[in-house]
Amino acid sequence: MTRSIPMTMLLLWAGSAVAGQPSQTPTPAALWKEECAACHMAYPARLLPAESWKAIMAGLKSHFGTDATVDAPAAAAIERFLVANAGMRAVRSTGGPVPLRITTSPWFIREHREVAASTWKRPEIKSPSNCTACHTGAESNNFSDDLSGTSGGRRR
């Protein structure tokens, strides 16, 4: 019996070494990307204030119409990551509801005021939440105004 435990450990170690993948906890940033980007672009934390992220993480059971629940340790790590990197822009008057949508933030509406309603409705855009349709660098956190690589002019 005494020999069996070291043998188990040796085999576990050998298996892990062969696979080249020692088990390790993913970083909060990796968890954020993995979980959020499973269904949509992983929106950068700076696009909403901390209180919005807290409200979003508290409501994943019904996240814009879908169940987006993650296990408790991952949810806690993702929330900490979002809050630590959250935006500082004021998004509501004191006492108002906590905003949950990036696309209804005053700054978002202002930044996109030149985009025509017909442009939003194009099949390849479909929704203001589809950042990458126009901001091709959005996945790399680049939301510059240079949309020359896209199929659309802003005013059409």
Partner: peptide
């Protein structure tokens, strides 16, 4: 214990 260890090692060798 031996089958358990072998199974675990085999799974590890298989990837994640």
């Amino acid at each position: 214990l031996i089958p358990l260890a072998l199974a675990t090692a085999a799974l590890s060798i298989g990837g994640a």
